[in-house]
Write a protein that binds this DNA or RNA. Structure first.
Length: 275
DNA sequence: CGAGGTACCTGACAGC
DNA sequence: TGCTGTCAGGTACCTC
């Protein structure tokens, strides 16, 4: 479900409440969600007693830095939620893993579709955390310059939509923010990466950074059921120019927004504004 | 490298 | 009511 701005919002909330807390127990109701180590007994033994030192993010992955040089890395995929709750709150139907904290609070891992994964790894074995080690650069990083962005395109010929969705190319964009960034840059999603002009690449760089920063400012996009760790919805859906607006008029030029399947994902763009 | 397909899961919704 | 098909904010893996 969440893309970079939603994950960043969750991380900012969790930082306020999780740092210095100790995990005193874990209830695993759905072992399928554990990506590493292979069995839930090992996972539980490894995590009980750990103190949470910090909470951060890389791409769409949430990172809990733990004591004893370990990390818990979580990817929410399509429908995942990480919720901070009172321990006496009723479990939801889709609460699959519960981390009991030392202050009568819980960190709960919820997901309807069971695509989400949690990895408990040693700091020195990051490769055990799925695609974590193969992530491309952070688009909002202070050190990620226009020059760096342009260099990424060297030798790439893929359709721009698919390239932006590729986490190895760049980390954090998903279907919503890719469509929104391409609209703001005036680039049709079916364009080949090697057909983009220098000027278009500059516009795209700025559009990606802007749309992600705004997404964070608004606390993410709640299209159906996204909520942050405190159960609050996002507000960026009000700022969407094309996503989920198929058949409606473009706010900018009045053309009807097109919705069609591109690279296997439903894609939204304006035929008037995007060339 | 890249395109297209499948797979993983559950639920909402449209159409019959 | 209930069946079937389609769709969903993601990614891994396979084949060509």
């Amino acid at each position: 479900m969440p893309e970079l701005p939603e994950v960043e919002t969750i991380v900012r909330e969790l930082k306020k409440v999780l740092i210095s807390r100790k995990i005193i127990n874990v209830e695993i109701k759905e072992p399928l969600l554990i990506g590493f180590p292979g069995n839930s007994v090992q996972f539980k033994e490894g995590i009980v007693g750990q103190k949470i030192i910090n909470v951060s993010r890389r791409g769409k992955y949430i990172i809990l830095v733990l004591s004893e040089e370990k990390r818990m890395i979580i990817h929410l995929r399509m429908s995942g939620k990480l919720l901070f709750k009172n321990s006496y709150d009723r479990y939801g139907k889709h609460t699959h893993i519960v981390f009991k904290l030392d202050n009568n609070k819980d960190l709960r891992f919820n997901t309807i579709r069971k695509f989400s994964r949690v990895y408990l790894i040693e700091d020195k074995c990051l490769e055990n955390a799925g695609g974590f080690v193969n992530l491309g650069p952070e688009p909002l990083g202070d050190d990620f310059t226009l020059r760096d962005f342009k260099l990424l395109f060297k030798g790439r010929k893929a359709i721009i939509k698919s390239l932006l969705l590729n986490q190895k190319f760049m980390a954090g964009l998903g279907n919503i923010y890719t469509d929104e960034a391409l609209f703001r840059a005036g680039i049709k999603p079916t364009r080949r990466a090697d057909s983009l002009t220098d000027k278009e690449l500059s516009k795209l760089y700025k559009a990606i950074r802007k749309v992600l920063a705004e997404g964070i400012k608004y606390g993410g996009t709640t299209f159906s059921d996204y909520v942050n760790a405190m159960g609050q919805k996002g507000d960026f859906q009000g700022e969407l120019m094309v996503y989920q607006r198929g058949g409606e008029k473009c706010y900018n030029c009045g053309h009807k927004i097109i919705r069609e399947k591109i690279c296997g994902r439903s894609t939204h763009y304006c035929p008037g504004c995007q060339q």
